[in-house]
Design a protein around this nucleic acid. Structure first.
Lengths: 204, 204
DNA sequence: TCTAATAAGATACTATTCGTATCCTATTGA
DNA sequence: TCAATAGGATACGAATAGTATCTTATTAGA
C-alpha cells in the first residue's frame, strides 16, 4: 500500500476517528476496532500508542485544545467577568455529551482502581493530573485573575475569599451541567453570581 | 436439580450477586454472566427480568433501600440539623465507589440516548424518575422539613429560600463527593453551612 | 544515494462476553 | 392430580478485546 502515514499526521487521523466514533456511537459502546477503521488504519497501530480505550479518548480530548483554551475576560466588573466566563464554561461542556463524560470518568477511575490493586506503576493519569483536574486548575487561574482585579478595584473583600468560595461559581455551574445534566440559562448564571457568590464576598 | 428457588428469594440471591460483582469487579467490567454464576443461576433467568446490565444494577440499588432511607433530624437548630444530614449523605455515597456511580450513570444515559434514537418506547427510567432524581427529591423533602422549622423559629428568612438556595448545601456535598471524589470532613460541612448557606438565608 | 532501522498496516488468533434460543423439569396452584 | 409457570442448563452466533506475526513503505543516517 502506498502513501503510508506516520507520526502526527497519523495520530491526527486517529483522533478524528475518535471524535466521529464518540459522536455516532457514544462512549459506552465505543470500539477501538471501529476507530481504526474510521481512521483507515488497524488496531495494532492504536494499541502501540494507547493501552486502553480510556487512554485513547483521553488523548484525543487533550489534543483538542479547545477544552482548555479560554482567557480571563476583563469587562471592568467582577460581575461582568463572571457572567462571561460561566457562559464560556457552559459552551465547553456542551462539546461533549454527558454520556461521554461519565463513561470516560468511570473508566479512568476503573483503571486507577485496578492499577492500585496490582500495585504496579503504569503511567496512568493520576487523580491530580487528570484532564478534569487540569480543566479545574485552569479555571481556578482565571478566577484568581478576575478576583484579583476585583479586590484591587475594591469590589471584593480579599479576606472572604476562601478556596471553597473561589471555586463556588464554577462548582455550581459544573454541577448543573454534569451531574444534573441541565442546560445553563442566563438566568441561572445571574442567580449564581448575584444571589450566591457576590453577596458572600462583596464589599459593602 | 432440587431446591429450585423462585420469585423474591431468587431475586434476592441475584441482587447479592450484583453487590459482590460490583465490589470485586466494579462497574466497567461488570459481567451478567458472572452475576449469574455468583447467584448460582444462569443468564436467561436474569435476562428474563432485566434487559441490560444497567437495569439490573439499577434494580439492585433500588432494592437496597438504605440508599433512600434517612429521616430529617431535629436538633433544635437549622445549623445542627444540616450538619447531621450532610454527614449522613456523605455516608450513603460511601456505599458506592465513584467508578460504579459514574459507570451506571453513563450507561443509563446511553440507554436513554439510544432509545431516543430508536424513538421506541421501552420502559427505561426517565431522567425524572431516575434513582438519582429520586434520591434528590427525597433529600429535598428532608431539607424542606428542616427549613420549615427554621422559618417557624425565626432563624431563617423564608423569602430568601429560592429553589437553588434550598438545594445548595446538598449540591455542594454531592459535588465534592461525586465529581471531586474527595471525602467530606467535619470542617467541610461546617464551612458549607456556616460560611455559605446560613449567611445567605439567616435572619439578622 | 544506498542501506538499515523503524513503524504502518494487514491478517489471524484466542478469549470473553453478550444476548438469544432451545430444551428439560421442579414447583406451584387450580 | 395435572396443567401452567418459570428455573436452570446448555449451546449458539456475533462482536470485540488484545496480542502475535509478517510484509513493506518510509525515514534517517552513513
Amino acid at each position: 500500500m502506498r502513501n503510508r502515514r506516520r507520526g502526527k499526521v497519523l495520530e491526527a487521523a486517529i483522533f478524528r476517528g475518535v471524535w466521529r466514533e464518540l459522536a455516532e456511537t457514544g462512549y459506552v459502546n465505543f470500539s477501538i476496532e471501529r476507530v481504526a477503521a474510521r481512521a483507515g488504519t488497524s488496531k495494532p497501530v492504536i494499541y502501540r500508542r494507547w493501552p486502553t480505550r480510556a487512554r485513547l479518548v483521553y488523548a484525543a480530548l487533550r489534543a483538542n485544545r479547545s477544552v482548555l483554551s479560554s482567557k480571563a475576560p476583563d469587562t471592568g466588573t467582577v460581575r461582568g467577568d463572571l457572567l462571561v466566563i460561566l457562559r464560556h464554561i457552559s459552551e465547553m461542556v456542551d462539546e461533549l455529551s454527558p454520556e461521554v463524560i461519565f463513561g470516560l470518568i468511570a473508566e479512568l477511575l476503573h483503571e486507577r482502581d485496578s492499577s492500585e490493586r496490582d500495585s504496579s506503576e503504569r503511567d496512568l493519569p493520576e487523580r491530580d493530573s487528570s484532564l478534569f483536574a487540569e480543566v479545574q486548575e485552569h479555571n481556578a487561574k482565571i478566577m484568581t485573575e478576575i478576583l484579583t482585579r476585583g479586590v484591587q478595584r475594591g469590589e471584593i473583600v480579599a479576606e472572604r475569599l476562601t478556596p471553597r468560595l473561589v471555586a463556588l461559581p464554577f462548582d455550581l455551574v459544573r454541577y448543573q451541567l454534569i451531574v444534573l445534566q441541565q442546560p445553563l440559562s442566563a438566568q441561572d448564571t445571574e442567580e449564581i453570581v448575584d444571589r450566591i457568590f457576590l453577596p458572600l464576598v462583596r464589599a459593602d
